[in-house]
Design a protein around this nucleic acid. Structure first.
Lengths: 226, 226
DNA sequence: TTCGACCGACTGAGCGTTCGTTCGGTCACT
DNA sequence: AGTGACCGAACGAACGCTCAGTCGGTCGAA
């Protein structure tokens, strides 16, 4: 559940020590990265903030970018951990969805600096390290796909199969939007307002399909050109 | 319609020449930034690609970050220019909205590298230069607010006032999502599929409210906990 | 004595930015 | 038309500095 893909080599032998030191490193680095960004943070700053010498730092990583990768993995771990708690919580898919969205948005809000960091710095990873990070991002989308799928199965979320993936992406992105548009959104909404409004929009949208079903028409197709 | 806030000083006197040379610079830089990112692009590369000497480059800017700012302004200009064409096109707010979304998504697709660039590099701007860029981003949101507002006025888009801003943000972000999630989305949808599906979701959502009105119930409020 | 975790002075590539210089063009005066 | 003073756009070598990464050494535990 926690590791991604290729392990980062370390010159230190004891695996427990490696894990412990890397946690030090990551927790120090995350603060610095949030504060100044990846590029403007120096390895020396990371070393000092971790309580290690610069040489020691390089016993546990091979490059500065490795630190970024570790940080990304750590953050994804945090998100996944918090989200796992409600994985099988409620009864209908519809309720599960609403609960999960609330949890997810809440989590995004708590970890907003971290989420923003991933958003802004993922591109600085070397290609090979980027893939596992994106995969983990997609796993998050999959979680919501699963929920939507269950709602589809039990009839509580009447949508067509081809929209599932899209809606799942929408949910994730609209959650993350709370962080990368906070300069605008926080001026107008509290987290609760934001969450409930987004859920309400989404569920109304889903309800619409239900009603349309009873009406028997598809609507919104002959809307314009193309 | 085109300029932002504080002008960037140049040591060159002739304003026409300044504009022309800066266009050279921007168009060269934009390619490099898309290719390698802002940080990994050197001023020398920018100079060479613009057909200028390093020294000349600095006749027209004061720092490397100025180039980034010019690039951002240029891109926003492109987007705004393309969007302006349909500003007063159709009759009902609802139709205007659909048309504008199509145009916007199409535009985002055409300029996807540029849009992505702004998304990823805005944070590298110095604070003072960042503000005008964000303001221009908000202007885009305002465009959609305006459209939604008109739809509200003519009754074709029955939503409550407090949702207008949120929906406008949603539209803009879901458009931009096409660029920053292309690694996932392009695998599953063409631009047309993506656009029509998103519009359809949005309009159904709006239609839902309409129907709810005739039903007289609010729904989706007692969905879960607090 | 051996081993491995830790250290930090050192290196050198690479960066943004500067500044002394060049040189084609313009214009006032003859 | 001819001349020379002046202008300013263009140039690029060089400067000063930063910073990722290295390497030889120290030290404590086994």
């Amino acid at each position: 559940m926690s590791n991604g893909c290729k392990p980062i080599p370390s010159r230190v032998l004891d695996p427990q020590l490696v894990e412990a030191r890397r946690l030090q490193i990551v927790q120090a680095a995350v603060v610095l990265f949030v504060e100044k960004g990846f590029h403007k943070t120096t390895t020396r700053e990371i070393a000092k903030a971790s309580g290690l010498g610069i040489g020691t730092l390089y016993e546990y990583i091979q490059s500065k970018e490795d630190v970024l990768y570790l940080v990304c993995a750590y953050i994804h771990g945090e998100v996944e951990h918090r989200l796992a708690e409600v994985r099988d919580a409620s009864r209908s898919g519809r309720e599960w969805l609403a609960t999960s969205i609330r949890r997810f948005f809440h989590c995004v809000d708590e970890l907003q600096d971290y989420v923003l960091l991933i958003y802004q710095e993922t591109k600085s990873l070397p290609k090979e390290r980027m893939h596992p990070v994106l995969e983990r991002e997609e796993a998050l989308v999959h979680l919501f796909e699963e929920i939507l799928e269950r709602g589809r199965a039990d009839g509580s979320i009447p949508i067509d199969a081809a929209s599932v993936k899209l809606i799942a992406h929408n949910i994730v992105v609209l959650g993350q939007m709370w962080t990368f548009r906070r300069w605008a959104l926080h001026r107008h909404y509290t987290l609760e307002e934001y969450t409930e409004r987004q859920i309400s929009l989404l569920l109304q949208e889903i309800r619409a399909r239900e009603l349309e079903g009873t009406q028997g028409s598809q609507g919104s197709q002959g809307e314009g050109k193309s």
